Amino acid sequence: MAEDRAVRVGIIGGGFMAAVHSRAARAAGADLAAVASSSPERGRAAATALGARGSADDADALIADPEIDVVHICTPNDSHERLAIRALDAGKHVVCEKPLALSGPAAAGLAARAASAGRVATVPFVYRFHPMVREARALTASGSIGRVLHVDGRYLQDWLLGADDVNWRVDASAGGRSRAFADIGSHVVDLLEFVTGDRIVALTAITSVAHAARGGRPVATEDMVHVLVRLASGCHGSLTVSQVAAGRKNALRLELYGSDASIGFDQEHPDQLLLGRRAHTAVVSRDPAALSADAARLSIVPAGHPMGYQDAFTAFVRDTYDGVISGSLRPEVPTFADGARAALLTDLVLDSAASGEWVDVPSAVPA
């Protein structure tokens, strides 16, 4: 596409995530051309709510629109694979919510399809785009905390705490056979591997359900997951994921414990890192003048001016669009290959929970 015009974007979906994508698209300088939802009427309403120029009668019409450069897929999980295939086959660049597909092999197939098509295809693992996550990554890579000995990751929410709390994600036919891990655990493993630069090579997991039924219907997907992991370096770690943790709204934390120091990142306080040493512990606040180059690039306001989730999402979208325009995607941008990695790990977490055994993580999964 020409570099002298804005990227033209279409969004499929009209819910919370579509709103987040729309704000990011506009902030990144895109032309929000159209929105499609589950019906023409819903599409028109969503287009008005999201500030789009127009709407499409359905997803197929939006994908077929020759004006659209990038399709954002913000629909229930069971439709991601189908819509991504259609968009890629239509020559579109794609931003698809996770899980990329409902199984590791299906997600790997999408990643291969995107690579073959030569399209930019990204998945919003947006916590990578907090400046202080990039700072944690730079400090770890530089050896500032020494050899990483063990890691701890947590993602805790309470929005499904009650037995009467229901959502389409609870239904395995729409959300897939994993709920808590596919929905938020995938962010933990992506962040762990991104910050450490290391890979999970084996894991063992247990899952549990808080309520056997929700809204009078049996529950087949997990509320809580505990995972032990072994990384390629030999480092061990523990991960805890819950959507029934009372009082925790969006508590994503990653802590790395090295031979010289530790680093802690808390998504609910994203402008800070906790840097611990045996002699003292310090809070490192975001200051572009003192950060690594990558962290400073993402730091769009001066020190003392808070940044948050929407800023991280916008940075992800902006880097995606820059890749569309230039034909070269920054290596830190999460692609369909990263989405396939998360889907593979989700499969293995459920497999391990079912067998009670450790399972090895292959470097890749056949499509």
Rank of each mutant, 00 (worst) to 15 (best):
A46T: 04
L102G: 00
R113K: 12
S38V: 14
V95W: 00
K98C: 06
C74M: 08
A36T: 09
G51C: 12
A64K: 09
A121Q: 04
E97N: 06
R42A: 14
H130I: 05
I63K: 01
P131I: 05
A112L: 14
A34G: 06
H72A: 13
P76I: 10
E41H: 09
T75S: 06
G104V: 04
A114W: 04
L83H: 03
L83K: 05
I68E: 01
A106Y: 12
Y127F: 14
L50E: 11
V133L: 10
R82K: 10
I73V: 13
K98A: 05
P124N: 10
R128C: 09
T122E: 06
A108F: 01
R113G: 03
G54T: 13
V70Y: 04
A90I: 12
K92V: 03
A47R: 03
H130E: 06
F125M: 13
V133Y: 09
S38W: 11
L88I: 15
A115F: 11
R119D: 04
I85Q: 12
R128H: 12
E41S: 14
L62D: 03
V94P: 04
D60P: 06
R128Y: 06
A121N: 00
T122R: 03
F129M: 07
G91T: 10
H80L: 03
I73F: 07
M132Y: 02
A56P: 01
E97H: 00
V126P: 00
R119L: 07
P105M: 08
V95F: 05
A107G: 05
S79K: 13
G118E: 07
T48Q: 15
P40N: 14
D60A: 15
K92W: 03
D60C: 11
A101E: 01
G109I: 03
G104R: 09
E97Q: 11
R53N: 13
F125V: 08
V126F: 13
C96M: 08
V70T: 10
E41T: 15
V94F: 12
G109R: 05
I73G: 02
P131Q: 09
F129T: 00
V123E: 04
P76K: 08
S103V: 07
P66K: 08
F125G: 00
R86D: 10
R53K: 14
A52S: 13
F129D: 00
A101K: 04
A45L: 15
D89L: 08
V70R: 02
D89Y: 02
A117W: 04
R128G: 09
V71E: 02
K92H: 05
R82Y: 08
V94I: 07
L62V: 07
A121W: 03
G104P: 00
M132A: 05
V95L: 15
V126C: 14
L88T: 07
D57T: 14
T122L: 02
A49V: 11
M132F: 04
A121K: 01
R128P: 05
A115H: 13
K98F: 08
E41M: 11
P76V: 09
L100G: 03
D65L: 14
P40H: 15
A117D: 07
R82M: 10
H93V: 09
A117S: 14
M132V: 07
A111Q: 01
T75F: 02
D78E: 12
